[in-house]
């Protein structure tokens, strides 16, 4: 059975593409066949984060418009052989993406035996974001512990509950999860940043992962290597935990507390 997962957020710049790339790699590394699709028509970026930007010949819109077959457009990852990328088009015509076209592509991937399809949503609540979530079985809502991101996530949760196929059919709706990124345990401890529990309480959702603020994320995107592949990194381990939870394992949250400091450090700051 194929499971369609949308990675969405409402607000831009919170880490949707980073998350899509890492989850896709992490799931595929466990032997599942995974396709990750960039829905950000006009602003293609997933290819860069995945490091396959020079191998894009055909894109999502080309497939929908019948300029090529789906097989021709799928880019096989060079590191993990069960992982494929479908790049977004650079066209400025936002109407190039249609519900019928998206359905055809997802149906073909399903018929082809893919286990997971990850839909990397664009920011905002326009057509691209709507189509990225429409056919989803599950949603990973990426949120930063910051006011505008949390509020936008709540908007997105409202859309997931009303403007998706599962919501329309009334069969339980889309299963939603929160994934916090850019989390700084130190700032949470000093009362400058909302905690995991704060965000969880406001949005009323399960947390599937907490990715700490990490310099490795930028390094990874510089190199075109999804951060999850940098085993030493805290961010990679946090994403790996999120993958495990997505696949049904239960794991305690890590990287949400600052390492304990000694008595003097606590009393006199530092």
């Amino acid at each position: 059975m194929t499971e369609i997962i949308v990675v969405t957020s409402g607000k831009g710049g919170v880490g949707k593409t980073t998350t899509s790339a890492s989850l896709a790699c992490g799931i595929a590394r466990r032997g599942k066949r995974v396709a990750v699709i960039d829905f950000d028509i006009g602003l293609r970026n997933l290819d860069l984060i995945m490091g396959c930007e020079r191998r894009v010949v055909y894109d999502f819109v080309n497939v929908i418009q019948g300029d090529c077959t789906l097989k021709q457009a799928l880019i096989k990852d060079k590191r993990i052989d069960t992982l494929y990328v479908l790049a977004a088009s650079q066209t400025r015509d936002k109407d190039a993406l249609t519900q019928e076209g998206v359905r055809r592509v997802l149906d073909e991937l399903t018929a082809d035996g893919f286990d997971y399809i990850i839909c990397d949503s664009p920011a905002g609540i326009e057509k691209g974001a709507h189509l990225a979530m429409y056919f989803a079985d599950r949603a990973v809502v990426v949120v930063n512990p910051e006011v505008s991101s949390v509020r936008d996530s709540d908007r997105i949760l409202g859309l997931l509950a009303s403007k998706t196929l599962r919501a329309e059919q009334g069969n339980g709706g889309v299963k939603e999860h929160l994934l916090l990124t850019r989390y700084s345990p130190k700032r949470v401890a000093s009362g400058e940043m909302m905690s995991v529990d704060d965000v969880k309480e406001i949005l009323g959702l399960d947390v599937i992962g907490v990715v700490p603020e990490s310099q490795d994320v930028l390094t990874a995107s510089n190199a075109g290597t999804p951060v999850i592949l940098n085993e030493q990194s805290d961010a990679a381990q946090a994403y790996e935990d999120a993958v495990a939870r997505l696949l049904g394992e239960s794991k305690p949250l890590r990287f949400i507390e600052e390492p304990k400091k000694g008595f003097f450090a606590r009393m006199f700051g530092g």
């Binding site: 006011v147 509020r151 000093s190 009362g191 400058e192 909302m194 406001i202 949005l203 006199f268 700051g269």
Partner: peptide
């Protein structure tokens, strides 16, 4: 957090954020 913070009574900025969000989201 230093010694002074123990005596400070103003709410942290995170709890202000949480309260504002709780209201607007509801």
């Amino acid at each position: 957090m230093g010694l002074l913070a123990l005596f400070r009574r103003t709410p942290s900025s995170a709890s202000v954020a949480k309260e504002r969000l709780r209201i607007i989201v509801a």
